[in-house]
Structure formats: C-alpha cells, structure tokens
Design a protein around this nucleic acid. Structure first.
Lengths: 210, 210
DNA sequence: TAACGATACGGACCCCGGGTCCGTTTAGCA
DNA sequence: TGCTAAACGGACCCGGGGTCCGTATCGTTA
C-alpha cells in the first residue's frame, strides 16, 4: 500500500472544514439547520472540496466524532480503572455508560446530528456497533444477567442523543442529576441478579396480533 | 363551535389516502422511500388534496397511527387487567410495555416513520408524551423506585421503533424472543427494589469535562 | 331543477439541501 | 521554469416537501 501523502492544501482545507463544522454545530442548537454549504462557506472552501474530503454528510459527522472521541476511546481501551479493561465488569459498565453520557452532554449538537440526523438507522453505524459490542462483552462477564445483547441495547438506548437532548435541553435536567438517574437505573438493571428460578413473569397475551 | 360537516368527496378522499398510505408503508420496508407524491398517486388524488387533508407528512403519519392505535388505547384506558387501570402497577408496567412492543412489531414501517422519520425529535410528539405520562404515573405507584420519569423514558427507549426494527429486521430476533427479553429487562428494573440505604454507587469522574 | 356560493380538487410550481461535474488553479517535483 | 497530477470551487442537477390558484364539484336555496 503506497498511500502517497496528500497535498498540503488538502490537509489544510480538511482541517478548516472540520473546525468550521465544529463551530457551526456548537453555535446552532438544531443540527438539521447546519447546511453543508454553510460549513463550506464558513471554512472558506467550495462545496466540492468539502465533499471530496469527507464523502457525504455522515462522513463529515463521523470525522468530527472520531476526533472528539479519541481521548475517551483511549481511556476505555488502555486506560486505568474504572474505564479501562482491568476494571471488574460490575464497576465498568456504569463507568462506561456514565462516560458516554457525559460525552453526549458535552457534544450535544454533534451527537444529535450523528445519531439521529441521518435518514438511515443509527443502529447501522459502526460506532454504535463498537459500543454495543464492548458493553455486551462486559455484561456477559457479570453472572446471572439475562440477555447481554439486549441489555446492552437497552442501556445504550437510555442515553440516546435525542433523549439526552430532550432531558438536558427541554426539561432542563441538570447534568449531575442525569448522571445519578442513569447510575441508579443501571444499578437496578445490574443488581436484578439471577432471576430466582421458577419466578418467570408471564406477560399474558394482549399482543395485538400473533 | 358550529363545525359544519365536511363534503362527501373530502371524506372519501381522506379515506383513500389513508388506505393508500397504509398499503405503501406496508409494502416498502424503508419508510423514507415512501414519498407523499407516491401516496397521493396511489390514492388517485392530487398532492394538494393530500396536504389539505393532513397538513404535512407528520400529520399523515399521526392520522395513520391514531387509527391503528385506537383499540389498544381503549384497552389501556378502560379495559380489563392486565392492561386496564384496575391492574396493580407491578403487573401493569410490563403489560403496557409488552403491548407497545407488539404494536410496534405489527406496524414496523409505520412506527419507524412516525418516530424516527421526522426531522424533529420524537420526544416532542405528544403521543410520546402520553405514553410517558401514563407509564411514569404507574411507575410512581410502585414503592422504592428511584426516578419514575427517567425510568419511564429509559424503558420506552428500550422499545424505540428503530431498535425494534434493527432487532427484528436485521438481527432476525423472533417476536417471542424479543418479548421475553423485554419482560426480563423490565422485571430487572422493577425488582431492583428500594436501594438499600447507604449503598449509593459512586460513579467516579472521568466525565469528559465538568 | 336551475342557479350559485362555498368547498375541494389537482398538478404545475417553488424552495432548499445533498451531491456531482468539469473547466480552472495550484502544489510539488524534475 | 515547466509540467503533470492532484485539488479546487461553484454552477448545476435531482428529488422531495409544501404551496397556489384556476377549475370542477358539492349541496343548498329558490
């Protein structure tokens, strides 16, 4: 793979676009309102340049996300407890979720655009697959938990960008409050322990079709 | 409020559009692909008619949703246990969630379009507010639960249309399996019981800013 | 039943945003 | 300094939501 180095102006422009996008997303609260033409203009660059550098809207969002996420990812992959791999699962799960929540709180417009802006399901995005995979793996190491895959999905759903935005933005729930609520909720899920045998809850029909 | 009766052709056309939309959403799996022009054409009606009858895309979706939901709503509001108001909270919560899940499974494309299609947050929609309000109210009657509002949000998030679609459509999780998973998850949340005093879980920093 | 106002119809039209194309410019190498 | 490959940029295209208004239809009154 030769992978010849890109031209200087290319990297400069790429950077300019990244910064302009960052600024625009931070300023406008509605990510839908941020147009790619506007980003290009703010970066002092033509639309063509922007699209060549990032492919399409999701591509730009992804690039922005990766850049911001980098320190977090490192802390998760190789850092010390309570985030790093050495942490016992029962502690690591809430730490991961809390970190993700804080990240989303710190990058509300971006995360909103990333997760919910696209026309295709956020569950296709591979950043989601990564988090889900990690979380499910850690959950699997906690004995007595029902279905790690589903549990991971459900826990991640509790901190979806638009829910976070709704709580923080519209209902004005303060940061620390949300963190507590999430922690309590997570603890509830994790503590539910091995379902005492024989106490399976029957849900009883009314399933609107079958 | 006189509220004079609408003309016959108006109600006929309205009905035709509703049915055409129903059919189109059922056929195409991707709700994004269903264009309002296509719906109008399928109904044998001009776009103008469609927009006069329903206002805009969300309006049409809402109308479709209300129509389908009607029996469920009735069962919830005035029906017998385990859905109706007479049910003890601990049983009613899982019953409500299971019902909602089944409803979403039975109306996947529609619910997908309704919840995630719009450019604005699904948390603004008042159908969400209704479900959340009901669920939170019931949760509040269960002693020892941390935060009913947040818990309601989180439980509803676990059955968001796009997650349901992802599991049912892409990961091919069968209906009964999903119902079980949801039931187990819900039970875990509900059983977590009154947090033993003094055992508050500290999440310890790493909150990406503060 | 004829005539007339109110109501509804329908599709051409507008707007806007994502994405493309290609003639022009520029970096970087010899 | 000259040459080529790479990058630039903005005019352009496309498709979908939503509007407008001249025309057709309803249904009511005489």
């Amino acid at each position: 793979m030769p992978e010849r180095k890109p031209r200087k102006d290319a990297v400069r422009n790429r950077q300019a676009v990244l910064e302009a996008a960052d600024a625009l997303f931070a300023r406008d609260e509605s990510p839908e309102g941020v147009t790619l033409a506007a980003v290009a203009a703010a970066a002092g660059v033509g639309k063509g340049t922007l699209f060549r550098a990032f492919g399409d809207r999701p591509g730009l969002l992804r690039a922005l996300y990766e850049a911001r996420l980098d320190p977090v990812r490192e802390a998760v992959e190789t850092g010390p407890p309570p985030l790093g791999p050495a942490t016992p699962p029962r502690q690591r799960v809430p730490a991961l979720l809390d970190t993700l929540l804080c990240f989303k709180l710190d990058n509300r417009p971006l995360m909103l655009a990333l997760e919910e802006g696209g026309s295709s399901s956020p569950y296709q995005a591979d950043h989601y697959a990564r988090w889900h995979g990690l979380l499910a793996t850690v959950l699997r190491q906690i004995p007595g938990l029902a279905d790690s895959d589903f549990t991971a999905h459900a826990l991640l759903a509790a901190i979806r960008a638009d829910l976070v935005e709704h709580l923080a933005g519209h209902e004005c729930v303060p940061r620390e409050r949300m963190r507590e609520q999430l922690a309590d909720f997570t603890a509830g899920v994790l503590d539910s322990g091995p379902a005492r045998p024989g106490e399976r809850r029957v849900i009883r029909g009314r399933g609107a079709g079958e």
